[in-house]
């Protein structure tokens, strides 16, 4: 995006940091000031491909590649008509075919392949499906519907909390006023020492505050856990295909040596077999190669197959 230059006035982002590139349906870029200049009357032709353009079709270029911009534009336009939803199809395969067809149309338009036929096709589709298009425009897809629902739910929740907070505030205010009045009443009619009365009231107020502080966090957790996210409850995962057939039964590996019994791993060390092989050096030990493994392998090879008997000759 940094090395963008306007093809007409050659201004670059470097010269003018506030440069804004605009793009129209043909996919050729133009900077904002050039657009102002060229399309003073509201319409004109693209300086590169001479296609007549309208000024209000210019948009700010979001993508570096103008072709992408063009494709996005075409996609928007095509999808306005090809607005069928998955629910409108009998099977997933049909829906996929439909999507592929739409992609082909978009690809063709974006890459100037067979424009005439493709446009004809779009027109044909529009004519054939006019009613359906209008209907679908109003109807929201399932996903949009879910989103909407979520938003609605959240709105309700915030509304509820707001009301609760207001209620609480008024409650505390009322309480304070009541306390104050009680204090004044007490001071007016009681025969006790005024100082004592003020102290006991202050004590009471303090206790009440502490109690509230204790209660508040408990209320909060209750609230946050109570919030339910609409999507989770609605969409479920595909069931994991259950595998039929008998369950796997583990059978411990039994070595078929076809030879005399081998010493086991400990015996190799205890009975001194390893005294007769080169002990491993440090690098070898780091790699996990212990001398008893090599020793064991040699013994295994020496013993296995000693009982080998040739098959009975076949006549």
């Amino acid at each position: 995006m940094e090395d963008f230059t306007c093809p007409r006035c050659k201004t670059s982002k470097f010269q003018n940091p506030s440069l804004k590139m605009m793009v129209n349906v043909c996919g050729h870029g133009l900077c904002e000031s050039c657009v102002d200049l060229l399309f003073l009357k509201g319409s004109g032709s693209c300086p590169e491909c001479r296609i007549p353009l309208r000024r209000n079709n210019f948009r700010i270029q979001l993508f570096e590649d103008a072709n992408v911009e063009k494709e996005v534009d075409i996609r928007k336009r095509v999808l306005r008509d090809f607005n069928k939803k998955e629910e409108d199809f009998g099977s997933l395969a049909e829906y996929n075919d439909y999507l592929e067809e739409v992609e082909t149309i978009i690809y063709n338009l974006a890459n100037n392949i067979d424009i005439v036929n493709t446009n004809k096709k779009i027109e044909q589709y529009k004519r054939d499906n006019r009613e359906q298009i209008l209907k679908s425009k109003g109807k929201l897809g399932r996903e949009e519907y879910e989103l909407e629902e979520m938003l609605e739910f959240e709105k309700q929740q915030t509304e509820l909390r707001k009301q609760e907070i207001i209620m609480e505030e008024t409650e505390t205010k009322k309480k304070k006023i009541r306390e104050k009045e009680a204090l004044i009443d007490e001071l007016m009619f009681s025969t006790e020492n005024a100082k004592n009365i003020v102290e006991t009231f202050a004590q009471q107020a303090k206790e009440a505050k502490e109690e509230e502080a204790k209660a508040a966090p408990a209320k909060k957790t209750h609230f946050s856990s109570g919030i339910q996210i609409g999507r989770q409850s609605q969409s479920t995962f595909l069931p994991v295909p259950a595998e039929d057939g008998p369950l796997f039964v583990y059978k411990p590996f039994v070595m078929q040596t076809d030879g005399p019994k081998l010493p086991n791993d400990e015996d190799v060390i205890i009975k001194g077999y390893t005294n007769h092989v080169r002990s491993e050096n440090e690098q070898e030990r780091a790699g996990g190669f212990r001398s008893n493994i090599a020793c064991m392998r040699a013994l295994q090879d020496a013993f296995s197959g000693l009982y080998h008997v040739r098959k009975a000759p076949v006549h």
Partner: peptide, 12 residues
Amino acid sequence: RPVEGLLIDIKT
């Protein structure tokens, strides 16, 4: 390798 194994076994 079997020869090596046998020699080890004989030595042991």
